[in-house]
Structure formats: structure tokens, C-alpha cells
Nucleic acid binder design. Structure first.
Lengths: 109, 109
DNA sequence: TTGTTTCATTGCAATATTACGATGAAAGAT
DNA sequence: ATCTTTCATCGTAATATTGCAATGAAACAA
């Protein structure tokens, strides 16, 4: 039905899925990469950098903000977005633990 | 429109997004975790382990297979799925490089 | 042969995501 | 005050994803 039955999975499984969604669209990957590149914060010239319309960028920024991976500071008429390093680190811990499962496993077939 | 304009992003950005989609659903996370846990391959008792219908599990397995993260060996009437360690490692290299962006960046706001 | 088991595929409904035009809100400039 | 700039939000259309009942295919058992 298109409904993720989150109650039938562990908290960890749901958390990984939610975090992975942040990277599951190239526009959000591009946004994050650009925010890291221009480390001295940056505003909505993301719209110029990436070739999507302003409401679309704004929507992607909102999702990343909801996850806590980025934060936005209002500066006059513009808004300065940047990575929340603390949240990024927390996310990385969870994702890395998942990705490193192979270290404990043995090859089979 | 719901259309990811992949031609406007870099090859790397699209690759990260495609790989991240593998983990963007708790059922696929659960499948991968179970395959790692039962490292001596395992078949479709994933249907019993996870509480989803057989066609649904089969569909998720297909997606993971398309990405190359798992492979399936037919054994009589059953199919034995397991992680493709080589592909997993390649995926991990790409994802880790993306996640480690913060190591080169400096905090801003 | 007929039945059974296991899994893939088809077909469809429900829901989620993505994209953008139009509009609104807030801050500056004039 | 009006105009402009910048961004958020609303509304809606297009597309993608998820889930499962029904069915099909392949291997095995009788």
C-alpha cells in the first residue's frame, strides 16, 4: 500500500531508514556537498548552484532541517544554511555501525 | 512531478542517492541485517523473520539484487540469498567518503 | 500423472515523493 | 508609503514506492 509499517521493525532499523532517506535523492546529496564545500555557511544561492526551482530547493532544505542535519540562520532577507556538525556526527555513528556489519561477518556463497 | 532529474547531477551524486535508497526502507535494512547475522546464507524464511507478505519480501530482495548488494543461489525449490561482500565493500567506500566530508570541513554557525 | 513447496511475477490499490507555479511573509531600500 | 529581494508555504500534477492477492514457474515427492 505504500505504507511503511514502522511498528514491525526495530527502532534502529527505522532510524537507519529515515537517515538514509536524506541521501536518497541526488538534490539533497548535492545540497549537503555544497554546504560542506562552502563551509562558511551559505544561503539560497543553492538555487543557482543546483538547477531546481526555488520551492523545490526549499522543500529539500526543510527535510534536511527536520532531520537536524542542517540548520538555518535568518540574516535580513536571506537565510544562511549550514551543516549541524554535531548531528552529522551522530548520524555518521549510526550509519557507520550499519555499514561496518561486514567486518563481523564471514563470506558464504 | 516526482521525477529525479538525474542528468543535472554528477555521477557521484546519483550513485550515492541510488545506494542510499537500498537503506531507505526498514524492511531492506532488516533483510540485510538478517543476512549478515545468519552469515551461512539463508533462504526465504525472511518472510517469517520479517512480518511482510512473500511478494513484498521478494520485491525488496529484487531491489537489493539489482543493486548487486546481495546474490541468490537456487537450491532445489528454495533460493539462498546472501550478501555480496565485494559489492558491499565497494558501496561502503562510496558511502563512507560521503559521510566523512565533515573531517575536512570547519564549523561555521 | 497429481500434489506440494518455494519463490517470482503480474496487476492493482494506497500512499509517498518530487517538482513547480502561485502566493504569502518578512526585511531592506527608495 | 511602495518596491524589491529572499525565502517559505500552499496547491496540485506527475511519478515512484510499497504492499499484497492472485497467478505462474520450477523443483521435488507421491
Amino acid at each position: 500500500m505504500g505504507l511503511a509499517k514502522s511498528e514491525m521493525f526495530t527502532k534502529e532499523q527505522n532510524e537507519i531508514a529515515v537517515l538514509a532517506k536524506a541521501f536518497a535523492h541526488p538534490a539533497r546529496v548535492a545540497i549537503l556537498q555544497h554546504l560542506f564545500k562552502i563551509n562558511t555557511c551559505i544561503c539560497g544561492d543553492l538555487v543557482n548552484e543546483i538547477g531546481l526551482a526555488q520551492p523545490t530547493i526549499s522543500q529539500h532544505l526543510k527535510e534536511l532541517k527536520n532531520l537536524g542535519l542542517i540548520k538555518g540562520n535568518v540574516e535580513g532577507t536571506s537565510v544562511c544554511y549550514c551543516i549541524d556538525m554535531e548531528k552529522w556526527g551522530a548520524m555518521k555513528t549510526i550509519m557507520t555501525a550499519f555499514l561496518d556489519q561486514d567486518l563481523k561477518a564471514t563470506q558464504c556463497c
